[in-house]
Amino acid sequence: MTTPPQLSARDLRKEFGGGRRGEPVVAVDGIDFEVARGGALAIVGESGSGKTTVVRMMAGLETPTSGELLLDGAPLVHSGRGAEARLARARRIQMVFQDPYSSLDPRQTIGDGLAEILRLHGIADRDACEEVALTQLRRVGLDQRHLSMRPGSLSGGQRQRVAIARALAVDPEVLILDEAVAALDVSIQAQILNLLNDLRAESEVTYLFVTHDLAVAQQVTDTAIVMHRGRVVEEGTTDAVLTDPQADYTRRLLDAVPHRGWKPRRRLAASA
């Protein structure tokens, strides 16, 4: 990599609990990663791997126990108060959530929801709002008709498109996609994956793609880290990780994905 990393984590660690009530639970155990500007990093792992905690720290929903998250050399999450700090934070990092059914205000039309964000960030004034909102919707493959609809009349895939349009409306530097296609039907999943690739090709946004699905990660990302029990067990280009895995755990994950000629095996290690 010749360009300096845009986003990086240094020895990031998060513990929960502890204190008088015994040993703390280590959710993230000192991990490092970096992504170049406009790059896309996959954070792959199963439940309990710590990938969700990493994302929550990036979103500012959790504070790291130690270590740091840097964006262009400065701490990613500013704790500053006031409107200025809030808006600046929003333009640094945005997120698309897993559940398309609860990520939009059910009482707000799609147009109003977008307009609210556009006006807040001074991207468009009252008169230009609708037109800019429409442009944003067109970017994600929706149109005029959807402006006046409420989330209840949209399908899961359409809602996820709206969520993506809304997150990209503020032109963030980093977009976190937290299992963003996991809840969608297969044929819709493919549409969204293609859309994400198109959007990245036309802007400078950096993707952080959190997923349990290796095949899906490969579609959208350049590099990948595989997490297991709070640690990074493997890192490299996504293609290398998937086609030539080095860590036992990565191999185990790949073996478990159904494929042609797959023979599901039992490993008899039943633990709670």
Binding site: S155, G157, Q158, D185, V186, S187, I188, Q189, A190, Q191, L193, N194, N197, L214, A215, V216, Q218, Q219, D239, L242, T243, L254, V257, H259
Partner: peptide
């Protein structure tokens, strides 16, 4: 359905079925 599902080791644009189920 088969084409829409990404396959490990094959990196190419997915062929999608337009519309939704």
């Amino acid at each position: 359905l088969l084409a829409a599902r990404p396959e490990i080791g094959v990196r190419a644009r997915l062929r999608t079925v337009p519309g939704r189920p």
